[in-house]
Design a protein around this nucleic acid. Structure first.
Length: 702
DNA sequence: CTAGGGTTAG
């Protein structure tokens, strides 16, 4: 402390001494000084926070109010409320509380430390306020997710005759976006026009993101176009607006336009653009943006690297992603989450069941590594991991994660809760799925939809429809996916009238245009009721080309109900859609064979020869105690004899129970001298193998 | 002193 008194001259801490050590631009009288540099300037005097504080506390010296600023700044960085309180007490004791500038900053500091009650108290005790004081309080409420209070403060300010600046209006617009208060937002837009500051960049940017968040891309684009001096932020805002409203490709076009206008992107722009590349799987462009990021010096920015890594994972470039991951200096929570979510996404990307399985296992391994590294999982982690567990049908792991969400308190999150419902449903436990649903404290449309679909999938149509009515009753608006669940519930139960009523409700009351899945439900229903003609009528009524799935439903119906002609037609249609599909060729061939239509048989055979259609590539796999066994029809097995015997036994039992094996399943192709195995035969092998190798009563999930 | 932009989820 020996060196400290030298800067205390008379009764005032002399700040002049600092100036000698600092650049000339750093004038302490200028209140726009860079606080960080100021704090650095304190270094030669070894004045760290504690020393400075005790210096003020010990003496009876009068302290220039600007002396507090860097100290308060440090409190924000350390997020230390108690230090703010100590300084606040000193400010009052030493009489600086009349300094409006300092007190406004104090409002800010309390707000940034998340203590709005204190910020409000400071504000309320002020004898005078200016726009900045009002604005600071409002900004505090917005950043502490109390947008409603921010708006109240704004109204108070307007009542006492305050005059908002562009900063103020920007903050209010922000509050409107998080409340989705379109009315007030438009009202504010009115002020903006009145004040003639519509063309101001800061206002234009705020308007752009306001309209974007309220779902009006048109208005967001207009706000952007009206902005006179567009800066990086304007471009970033409009690019994100495109992405947030489902126009990722347009966003990328805007990015190209931005570059041609000579505006240099920053790390925010780059991350935004990369996330758009991710959505539309534009790996090529993404790679270019990656090199651009490195060129501009943002190559090591964590958010930039995270989004590039996620893009690579989503595109299936595991080694590229891994390289980035291994090269990162700091691995943030988001990095881990992106890594896990990326592998979860790759499960959908997988070409076959096996690679899907491995992506899932890898995701769980990364989750373990993350926990070992000491990183605490959050709601993003848990929902991804639960999704992985559902895709893997890994009930045990799912249960463990469930326990962890309880312990960490993340179970109360809607998304985690919904993921849990899906996990239990996928693992075959509808009871626990509905228990998880009931225990949720809040539910989104997606939660309701998941539960409705789960009931429908388990054939519990009544429960599904009851839940749908409950959902409507409390005022949640269903979307098209909800209706897929509802229609499939009706379809399962063969409730034709209800199905048609809900179909009309969807179109007329909710103005939702039916998509392929809705028709598939209805067609499936008619087919299963044996009303093949009605099913075909519905297909003809659709405004779009029937999907492969729809034709296969119809084919199955035609086969079991002996509608051969329509069946042949449907199969030929399916072949049109999937010209090289082995399974479809065999299906059609089998159908003609069983109808003894030899002309068609040889025609299809010739087509198959021309298309070089070979053997069925159908194979299955099963995971037993974390080991994967794969089965191909032609494979030799260790337990071949046992498996064959078990299958025979099962077939015998099934026959006794009245199940008739479809005669046309096994067909011998004399020409090729290969046995055509029935579809999913390998699946039978896998299940039989599973039965032999799991303890009695163990369950096998398909 | 007050603003406007970003990564991970169902």
């Amino acid at each position: 402390m020996a060196s400290l008194p030298s800067i205390v001259v008379g009764n005032t801490i002399k700040l002049d001494r600092f100036k000698k050590h600092t650049p000339s631009s750093l004038s302490l009288e200028n209140r726009n000084f860079n606080t960080k540099e100021f704090v650095k300037a304190l270094d030669p005097f070894h004045l760290d926070f504690r020393e400075a504080l005790s210096l003020i506390q010990e003496g009876n010296t009068k302290v220039e109010s600007s002396f507090y600023i860097p100290l308060l700044q440090e409190c924000i960085e350390k997020n230390s409320v108690s230090d703010v309180q100590a300084l606040h007490a000193l400010v009052i004791k030493r009489g600086s509380y009349q300094d409006l500038f300092l007190m406004t900053f104090l409002v800010n500091v309390y707000a940034k430390c998340g203590t709005m009650e204190s910020a409000r108290k400071v504000f309320d005790n002020l004898p005078k306020r200016n726009v900045v004081t009002w604005t600071s309080l409002m900004s505090g409420y917005v950043h502490n997710s109390q947008p409603l209070l921010a708006i109240t403060v704004f109204k108070e300010m307007m009542e006492v005759g305050g005059y908002p600046t562009n900063y103020t209006l920007g903050i209010v617009l922000n509050a409107c976006s998080s409340l989705c208060d379109i009315e007030l937002g438009k009202h504010i837009h009115g002020y903006i026009i009145k004040y003639g500051i519509e063309y101001d960049a800061s206002i234009g940017n705020a308007l752009c993101s306001f309209y974007s968040k309220c779902g009006s891309l048109d208005m967001a684009l207009k706000a952007f176009c009206r902005t006179r001096e567009k800066n990086v932020i304007s471009w970033t805002a409009v690019i994100s607006a495109c992405g947030d409203n489902g126009h990722s490709a347009m966003g990328l076009d805007m990015f190209v336009e931005m570059l041609s206008e000579g505006v240099e992107p920053n790390e925010f722009t780059l991350t935004s653009v990369l996330s758009l590349c991710c959505i539309i799987q534009a790996l090529g462009l993404g790679t270019q943006v990656h090199s651009l990021s490195i060129k501009l010096g943002y190559g090591t920015q964590i958010p930039v690297t995270n989004s590039i890594m996620y893009l690579y994972l989503k595109s299936g470039c595991i080694s590229e992603a891994k390289k980035l991951f291994d090269g990162m200096n700091t691995i943030s929570l988001v990095t881990w989450n992106a890594m896990i979510a990326g592998h979860a996404q790759m499960m959908d990307l997988g070409q076959d069941g096996l690679s899907t399985h491995f992506s899932g296992i890898e995701a769980l391994k990364i989750f373990q590594r993350m926990k070992r590294s000491g990183m605490k999982p959050d709601l993003y982690t848990f929902s991804s991991v639960l999704t992985v567990c559902s895709n893997l049908v890994a009930l045990e792991q799912g249960e463990q994660v469930h326990a962890q969400t309880i312990k960490t308190g993340f179970l109360s999150d809607v998304v985690v809760g919904t993921a849990l419902v899906n996990m239990y449903n996928k693992c075959g436990s509808i009871g626990r799925a509905s228990k998880a649903f009931i225990e949720m404290s809040t539910r989104t449309l997606i939660s309701w939809t998941s539960m409705i679909t789960a009931f429908a999938q388990h054939g519990l149509s009544q429960q599904a429809l009851q839940l749908f009515e409950d959902m409507r009753f409390i005022g949640v608006r269903p979307n098209k996916i909800t209706f897929v669940g509802v229609l499939s519930a009706c379809s399962q139960a063969g409730m034709v009238d209800e199905a048609l009523a809900y179909f009309n409700l969807m179109k007329n009351e909710y103005k939702i245009n039916p998509v392929m899945d809705h028709f598939a439900c209805l067609i499936d229903m008619f087919v299963r009721l044996g009303q093949i003609e009605q099913a075909f009528d519905f297909i003809k009524k659709m405004e779009f080309m029937p999907s492969e799935f729809i034709w296969s439903i119809l084919i199955a119906g035609c086969r079991s109900h002996g509608k051969l002609e329509l069946g042949f037609y449907a199969a030929e249609q399916l072949l049109d859609l999937k010209p090289k599909d082995t399974e479809t060729y065999f299906l059609l061939l089998n159908m003609y064979l069983s109808a003894s239509r030899w002309k068609d048989v040889s025609r299809v055979r010739k087509m198959m020869k021309d298309e070089k259609i070979g053997k069925l590539k159908d194979w299955s796999w099963i995971s037993i105690r974390n080991k994967v066994f794969s089965f191909k029809p032609e494979n030799r097995l260790n337990q071949e004899g046992e498996v064959a015997k078990l299958l025979e036994d099962l077939q015998e039992k099934a026959r006794v129970l009245g199940y008739q094996l479809q005669a046309n399943l096994e067909v011998v192709d004399e020409e090729e001298e290969t046995t055509l195995l029935p579809a999913h035969h390998s699946e039978k092998l896998a299940v039989a193998f599973g039965l032999l190798n799991t303890s009695n009563g163990g369950q096998i999930w398909a």
